[in-house]
Design a protein around this nucleic acid. Structure first.
Length: 733
DNA sequence: CGGGAGGTC
């Protein structure tokens, strides 16, 4: 076994890309400071804050000046005029902006100041993640010296901080897609900026195709609306839609070709240099190589924290143990090493540990999944150890089977990972693979749309009036088989007619519900079988990450806690019990006073209840939010929210009627056969039915790990299948 | 006997 890993050094190559050179640097083009103060003036005119005004202004004046200075120093500030000109001249523009260029916060302000919000039109900026939409909006509102929700606001699921005065609106890309269902021409927007387009999330990809269509439609008929009132004419006329695609990747060609050879400009970033180190020879055991490298850095390099990219929770836990063990062999002085794990399933309090600086003299070693690649930015990182691997979801459209496999990352991902070392100071990235191996990596990650279940996407496109889904102009087309399978799936669920049109009312109702189509259908079925109240809870609980929290060191306690909720009938009723128990505990803690759900002390009590019962409080909170939102939807649709009371057989009949596509029957060998695909599957160990062998079950998840597992399972009577889905299972009796 | 990361009017 090697005692050290040898690395060769490469300076990160500077790619040759057309750059937006700054010719304006000597000119005073920067004028957004004016707008900052004019907002202040307005506030004064309106006579707001009469008494505290003076004091506050002194403070905020200094802060404003500091903000204005920071803004001026951003790389994009020096090219404001040129970027704005390019947006004026081109209906579609691609901006390749490196990390730290300031594109996300500045461009919308530039465009606002240049008059792109005339006639009350909005600039929409989409982000793949909620936190990004919120934090960027907050920052921009502060830069403008206004209250969030006024000129600058954000809108994400469950949270809309905008008003009629909002002109710059940050939002998640998924939310804009939902908006398009209500207003297919997105007529209130003059500009839409799609940020982080290089991440190529499903939502981004669908949105890009949609925006192309909207742009064309708006050009064809700028004012095709029938207007009675001439006053409305000016406020609702539809102008061409300006589209700005912002990407961090250096390869803008793909976007440009897709968007009709759109012009691409490059805006410099502000990152510290990162030395790239490759191993001299391939490492067969990346865990061991990572361990050795951690200690090599710890003993040989200067101060600075280490970020290690690993593939999953289990791996992180074992590396954590190994680092602690090996640290014991170090001299007392060099033992000062602190490991901190980060992965999404970790409770948020523990996730927060990564942001805490290490105690004096300690070096922090962060062991992270891909969460640290984009979602969580950790300060203080100077060294990155990149295993070159990632656990990725893959989906087999033929069988409907999802699986998680460890695969090599792409070059773009390797670049993104190494960049995590150069945010505050020059850094180093230790790649646990050779330069030759790096050369063989794919240029970029396969877009998610090519490796996921498309049922939802297809339903959304149909609802947007796009009938030819197979011919839809995706930047990267998913396989024909994947689309056809989704069309079939939606047809069997009753969302589509034989002609492939959205069915009325079922298809329309399903498309309106922000849920997996099979869950949306479940609600409609349940409303007819008098257990919509129960089904609402179940689809909310099934829509979130695992509700149960079972840390390795307290596995027995967690198991005991779960037993309190367990139903012999299966996981669905177990989830129902958990939800209802949580509501009961909430009501108890609220008893006697008029506190609202949002009250902090009630929230704390719920968290305490979660801790005691080994429930993931983040997941439960999420489920409660979904429940509230979907309840609103089904009420608006006029569905009856009735309960089956104690009649759990009725509820299981409803589960069978809803999820008949996911039925499985026991084989003589004790394994199960999934009836739709004929695959052999087994009950996942996390199911309450694990160890029992009911003859017939329905399930909600099909995942391949070491085995083909099914999860979230309930026992059903096989006769119910032919009763509720005769068209699928036939009348066997 | 086991869970990459996002996200939805």
């Amino acid at each position: 076994m090697p005692s050290s890993v040898l690395f060769e050094v490469r300076r990160q190559a500077e790619e040759s890309v057309e750059k937006l050179v700054n010719h304006d640097r000597d000119h005073k083009v920067f004028n957004s400071g004016d707008s900052v103060f004019s907002d202040k003036d307005k506030m004064r005119e309106q006579g707001k804050r009469k008494f505290s005004w003076r004091n506050e202004t002194d403070e905020s004046f200094a802060r404003m000046r500091k903000i204005a200075q920071q803004r001026k120093s951003l790389p994009i500030a020096s090219v404001e005029r040129r970027v704005v000109d390019e947006v004026r001249k081109n209906d579609t523009l691609i901006i390749v902006g490196e990390t730290g260029s300031g594109k996300t916060t500045q461009l919308p302000q530039f465009l606002f100041n240049a008059g792109f919000c005339r006639d009350g039109k909005l600039i929409g900026v989409t982000q793949p993640r909620r936190v990004a939409a919120v934090t960027v909006a907050k920052r921009v509102a502060e830069e403008c010296g206004i209250e969030l929700g006024q000129k600058v606001g954000y809108s994400i699921r469950f949270e809309d901080v905008t008003s009629s005065t909002t002109r710059i609106k940050y939002m998640t890309d998924g939310l804009l897609l939902r908006e398009a269902l209500l207003d297919p021409r997105l007529s209130k927007y003059s500009v839409i900026i799609v940020d982080e387009a290089h991440e190529r999330t499903v939502h981004t990809d669908v949105l890009l195709g949609l925006l192309k269509n909207v742009q064309r439609a708006r050009l064809r008929s700028p004012t095709n609306q029938c207007l009675v009132d001439s006053k409305d004419f000016h406020t609702s006329k539809v102008l061409p839609l300006k589209l700005v695609i912002m990407s961090a990747s250096l390869d803008a060609r793909g976007f440009s070709e897709y968007l009709g050879n759109a012009k691409a400009v490059h805006v410099q970033g502000r990152q510290f240099p990162v030395d790239i180190l490759y191993t001299y020879s391939p490492e067969s055991d990346y865990i061991d190589a990572a361990l050795i490298t951690i200690f090599q850095i710890h003993l040989e390099e200067g101060p600075g924290d280490i970020l290690v990219f690993l593939t999953g929770q289990e791996e992180i836990e074992s590396v954590e143990r190994l680092v602690r063990e090996r640290a014991l062999h170090l001299s007392e002085d060099s033992r000062k090493i602190l490991t901190v794990p980060v992965y999404s399933a970790l409770p948020s309090e523990q996730q927060m540990q990564v942001f805490r600086p290490a105690p004096d003299g300690f070096r922090k070693v962060i062991l992270a999944t891909n969460i640290a690649e984009t979602s969580v930015t950790i300060p203080g990182i100077r060294f990155v150890i990149d295993t070159g691997l990632v656990k990725a979801r893959s989906f087999n459209p033929r069988t409907g089977m999802e699986s998680l496999v460890i695969i090599p990352i792409s070059k773009a991902q390797a670049l993104q990972r190494s960049g995590r070392a150069g945010r505050e100071v020059p850094g180093k990235c230790f790649r646990l693979y050779t330069e030759d191996e790096f050369g063989k990596l794919a240029e970029s990650t396969i877009p998610e749309i090519k490796r996921c279940n498309l049922s939802n996407v297809v339903l959304q496109l149909k609802a947007l009036g796009i009938d030819d889904v197979i011919g839809f102009d995706f930047m990267d087309k998913p396989s024909r088989m994947a689309v056809v399978k989704s069309l079939e799936h939606l047809y069997v669920l009753g969302a589509l007619t034989v002609e492939g049109k959205l069915s009325d009312p079922v298809g329309f109702q399903m498309a309106r519900l922000p849920l997996d189509p099979i869950y949306a259908k479940g609600l409609i079925v349940a409303s007819k079988l008098n257990c919509l109240e129960e089904m609402l809870i179940i689809v909310s609980m099934l829509s979130v990450e695992s509700i149960f929290y079972s840390p390795r060191e307290k596995m027995e306690e967690a198991r005991a806690a779960r037993k309190c909720f367990a139903s012999q009938e299966g996981d669905h009723i177990t989830l129902l019990n958990v939800y209802r128990a949580s509501v009961e505990s909430l009501e108890k803690s609220r008893m006697g006073n008029q506190e609202t759900i949002r009250d902090k002390t009630v929230e704390k009590k719920l968290n305490k209840w979660c801790r005691e019962n080994f429930i993931n409080s983040r997941s439960l909170r999420h489920a409660r939010e979904i429940h509230r939102q979907i309840l609103g939807h089904v009420q608006n649709m006029g569905l009856n929210v009735t309960s089956c009371g104690q009649d759990m057989d009725q509820f299981r009949r409803c589960l069978a009627a809803s999820f008949f596509l996911n039925a499985a029957v026991k084989q003589p060998d004790g394994l199960y056969r999934a009836m739709a695909s004929g695959q052999t599957v087994q009950i996942h160990p996390s199911s309450v039915l694990f160890g029992t062998k009911p003859d017939c079950i329905i399930f909600n998840e099909l995942v391949r790990t070491n085995h083909n597992y099914i999860r979230n399972i309930s026992r059903i009577d096989p006769l119910w299948l032919s009763e509720f889905a005769p068209h699928y299972y036939g009348n066997k009796e």
